[in-house]
Structure formats: C-alpha cells, structure tokens
C-alpha cells in the first residue's frame, strides 16, 4: 500500500459497476463494461489505455455528459461525496458541473469559444455558479489567469491570439475558477508540444497539490502517470484490467496487457535491440469476444480464457487484476 497517501481522507468519488453503451445502427457498442474505482480528496488517479478503450466515455459518464442518443448509461453508480450523481436531476447535475467537478479537455484549440474573450469565458463559469457581479467575476478571471501564469492584461484577447499551451492554461483556469473538488483531465497534454506538456503538467500538478483537489487523469502516456498519479487504472476494451497504487502497477505489473504496455516503452537503463509491441488490435467494442477481451492478443492465453470474462482478483491489498492466470497464482 502506498505510504504517501494514508487512507484517512474521505472518499471523494466512487464509481461502481458503471456500464455505458452506444446504440448505433451497427449494433450496441459496449464502451464501458462495469468499471469500478475510487478516489480520495487530493489523490490523483491515472486512467490509462489506448484509443477507444473507453476512458473518455467513463469521464463523460461521471459528468453525465455522454451524448444521448446514441450513448446511454446502462447501469452502475457514481458516488460523489456520498451522493449518487446518476440519480440527480438535470438542474442538480448542472449545479455540480464546473462547481464541484470540472473538466479539462483534450484539445485546447477547439475547447474555447472563438467569439468570446478569454476573460469573459473564465468569468462565465464564475457567474453561473456564484452570485457575483460582473465586475467581481472579471476580477476573479484576472486572478485565475495569473494563477495559471498568464498576465492579466491579456484577458481581453480572443482565443485565436493565444498559442496552444496558453490556451490550455486558459482551459485550466476555467476548470479551476470555482475551486472544484474534482478535476477530470481528459488527455490534457496530448495536443501539445513535449516541452509545453511538461509545463502544463507541472502547473496542473502544483495547483492540485496546493488546493488538495482530487483528480482523474486520463492519458495514454505512462510517463505522465508516473509523474503525477498516486493510483492507476489500466483500461482495455471498456474493462479496467488492472488497478492499484502507482507502486503496484509500475513495480509489480501482473496483467499481460500492462506488461505489454511497459514492454513497448523505451527504457534508458535497459539496452534492448527492439521494443516489443503488443501484437494485434483492440477488439471492436461492438463485437467483444466472449471471454477475456485481451485473450486474442495475449501471449499467455489458454483454453479457459475464451470461456468467460475473468473476475477481478485482489493479488495484494488494493491491487486488482482481471486475469485468470493471477487467480491460479501465476501471472508473475
């Protein structure tokens, strides 16, 4: 168990058996299949997986922003501070969004309204959730800009006058303006240059440490996870295949998929001739295999893998793996 994060802090977010499906003309796309995880105040959970694994859908599910139709939250519970968000009505839900839970989007180029100044856009969220005058909201917007490292004089400029990294800072300022308890960052650095990535990550991390905000960090970059997360959930085809503290995942990965991910990463210390990629492609979420979703690509597959989806097994306290090899004491 992680020593840095004693489990004394109250649970902030608890996702239980969340199932989200998209009903399309080609059949039902099973995007999220019974996802479980929890997050405490001030903790950062990394949600890792390749494109199409259901990471973003999970995040939208928490916010109840899954586009409906075609998306539908089929079952499950999302407890935020003890309240089930999936049972809240629209008005209550709207009050949570931006105030208690806010989201940082993947592409800063398109997530700002091109016809409003950045100052107005930050003030907007403040004005929606707090009874402040326009002048006070603008003042708050200026403060927020400074917190994210943009001079307040630039608040009257339009998004197209900012660079990508600066835009992402503005998006972060909007997300933080009402001091939310939970931030969902959906691949916040994917669209940015590597140097800017580091700056933005540092900024997010510092702010999160300072305000003790819970954070759900969605990424497909294990380097990002290593830098700022305290817990990790590895997602594959809508399932969380491995879930544990950062030490569990990075030092003792059990699931073949997790191992595959690490095998595909270049390592400075080890000299390898070639990286070992994971063969094959992720299965079509509209047509998942009967058994373990990773079975077709798994180097350790057996006959019994095709029978049914393996249950999650706790290999050490707090470290869950969804693989039958681990149930039989293998997997090492």
């Amino acid at each position: 168990m992680s020593v840095k994060n004693p489990d004394m802090r109250p649970e902030l977010l608890q996702v239980k058996d969340l199932v989200i499906q998209y009903e399309t003309s080609d059949g039902i796309v099973k995007a999220v299949n019974g996802v479980n995880f929890s997050l405490r105040e001030g903790e950062t959970l990394g949600l890792v997986g390749e494109t199409g694994a259901g990471k973003t859908t999970t995040a939208l599910g928490i916010m109840r922003l899954v586009p409906d139709p075609p998306g539908r939250i089929v079952s499950g519970q999302v407890f935020f501070e003890g309240k089930d968000l999936l049972k809240e009505n629209k008005v209550q839900m709207r009050a949570h969004r931006g105030k208690d839970i806010s989201m940082i989007f993947q592409d800063p180029m398109t997530s700002l309204n091109p016809v409003l100044t950045v100052g107005d856009q930050i003030a907007e969220v403040v004005r929606i959730h707090e009874k402040l005058s326009r002048a006070d909201a603008i003042k708050r917007a200026a403060e927020m800009l400074q917190i994210v490292g943009i001079p307040a004089e630039r608040m009257n400029e339009y998004p197209h006058q900012f660079s990508g990294g600066m835009k992402q800072r503005v998006v972060i300022a909007i997300a933080l303006a009402c001091s939310p308890k939970l931030i969902i960052a959906d691949e916040p650095t994917t669209a940015l240059d590597v140097t800017i990535q580091a700056q933005v990550l540092d900024l997010i991390h510092n702010i999160q440490q300072k305000y003790q905000t819970g954070m759900l960090m969605i990424t497909h970059d294990l380097g990002v996870v290593a830098e700022i997360c305290s817990k990790v959930a590895i997602m594959y085809a809508g399932y969380i295949v491995e879930y544990g503290s950062i030490e569990d995942i990075f030092e003792d990965p059990r699931h073949p998929y997790t191992k595959g991910l690490f095998g595909a990463l270049p390592n400075l210390k080890k000299k390898v001739h070639r990286l070992s990629p994971i063969d094959g492609m992720m299965p079509d979420p509209a047509n998942l295999p009967q058994g373990c979703p990773f079975e077709p690509r798994c180097p350790h597959r057996t006959e019994s893998c095709t029978q049914k989806v393996p249950e999650g097994i706790e290999v050490t306290p707090g470290h869950m793996v969804r693989c039958i090899c681990c149930a039989q004491g293998g997997g090492k």
Partner: peptide
Amino acid sequence: DQEYVEAAQSIGCSTAR
C-alpha cells in the same frame, strides 16, 4: 459538435445559455 460547446456543458451552462 465543437468541443467548446461540450466544454460549456461541462461548466454547467444551461441549454438556453
């Protein structure tokens, strides 16, 4: 379908707004 409309929803904007 622009992302900023989704972003507006995520900060709690009402549909009319």
